[in-house]
Amino acid sequence: MKNTLVAAGASLLVGAATAQGIQIAPAGTTPTILGAAQNFSGHAAVDIQSAGNSRKHGSVGMVAFAPGARTAWHTHPVGQLLIVTDGKGWVQEDGQPRREIKAGDVVWIEAGVKHWHGAAQANGMRHLAIAYVKDGQSADWKELVSDAQYDAR
């Protein structure tokens, strides 16, 4: 019995020592970028989350929106998942009323749905945004959300 356990433990160690399919990007190695003015209104700080060649498969970003900040209208070729981690904000599908989102909410946006998301007027909001790549693209950016569109209920 003892030899069986030793052999099993040795094979686990050998497997761990030879595993080379995992890559780690240490925290803080990717600089925070400000959301581009053609894609965001207001102050939005984006921390891209990637390691190895993960960016060829999908886009993951932790986005911190100041009060009133938001994305431009946009779509995603394979959809988008938002995980709200802090604060309160809104998400809106074109032609539909805006909807409140807050810390703990998880939002799925179907492929091709024109939408925007961002912070509420008086509160900041932070979310993890996950979009998958199709034909080298994870988002198709459109026009900025006007103040009138943002303020409309």
Rank of each mutant, 00 (worst) to 15 (best):
M1L: 09
M1C: 12
N3F: 00
A7T: 15
A8F: 03
A10R: 15
A10G: 13
S11Y: 02
L12W: 12
L12S: 13
G15C: 12
G15S: 14
A17N: 09
T18R: 03
T18Q: 12
Q23K: 14
P26E: 07
A27W: 02
G28T: 07
T29D: 08
P31R: 07
P31C: 00
P31Q: 10
I33C: 03
I33V: 12
G35L: 06
A36G: 04
A36N: 14
Q38N: 09
N39L: 08
N39C: 10
A45G: 14
D47N: 14
D47H: 06
I48C: 04
I48P: 11
S50I: 04
S50C: 05
A51Q: 05
A51N: 10
S54Q: 03
R55N: 06
K56W: 02
G58C: 11
G58L: 12
S59A: 08
S59E: 06
S59K: 03
V60Y: 10
G61Q: 09
G61C: 09
V63Q: 04
A64M: 01
A64S: 08
A66S: 10
A69D: 06
R70Y: 08
T71D: 02
W73M: 03
H74S: 01
T75V: 07
P77I: 09
P77V: 02
G79N: 09
Q80L: 01
Q80C: 03
V84W: 04
D86R: 12
D86Q: 12
K88V: 07
K88W: 03
G89T: 01
Q92A: 05
G95C: 07
G95I: 10
G95W: 15
Q96L: 12
Q96V: 06
R99E: 15
I101Y: 12
K102D: 02
A103Q: 08
V106W: 00
V106F: 00
V107F: 00
E110H: 04
A111S: 10
G112A: 09
G112I: 09
V113D: 00
K114W: 01
H115K: 11
H117W: 01
H117M: 03
G118W: 07
Q121E: 14
Q121P: 08
N123Y: 11
G124M: 10
M125I: 02
M125N: 03
M125Y: 04
L128H: 08
A129Y: 04
V133A: 02
V133W: 01
K134L: 14
D135H: 13
D135S: 14
Q137F: 06
S138W: 06
K142S: 07
E143F: 00
L144K: 04
V145W: 02
S146W: 13
D147N: 11
Q149Y: 12
Y150M: 06
Y150R: 09
Y150A: 13
D151R: 14
R153C: 00
R153F: 00
